[in-house]
Amino acid sequence: MKVDPTFPRPVFDGDSTPFWEGLKQHELLIQQCKDCEQYIFYPRSICPHCFSESVSFVPAQGSGVIYSYTVVHRAFGPFAKETPFVIGLIDLREGVRMMARIQGPREAVAIGKAVRVAYHDVDDELTLPAFELV
């Protein structure tokens, strides 16, 4: 696959590498704090709820609901030619929120609708999470 060289790529780092490596294997990993048991996204070295450093990656169930969404009509760089497209904020069942594209017919997209994770393989190095209506 040939990807636009201007595509904004995440730089895998000490927090994010397990998340991105998991996505390559089509697995959605979030974190959980061993002390307060709350789930955490995005990944970090310290729990933002209780400041514990005992945080570890766990597989997410992969289902959630649409908290909000927008249909993008004007985009920049490599995204300009993809409009219109739908981006949502998804509340996962574990109680964390993440941004992703929502796949499927845009007329069917609505706040509160159930979605489940899908995987968009950008190329061999990068897989992005996406969500599809269930």
Binding site: F76, I87, M99, L126
Partner: peptide, 29 residues
Amino acid sequence: QRLSPYVTLSEQYERSFGLPTPVGAYALA
């Protein structure tokens, strides 16, 4: 209109989806 081809630190979980900033975020709200 310039986009950086690399996204670091805690913005890397959003920028690859193509949301125009900042308008897309305000649209979500």
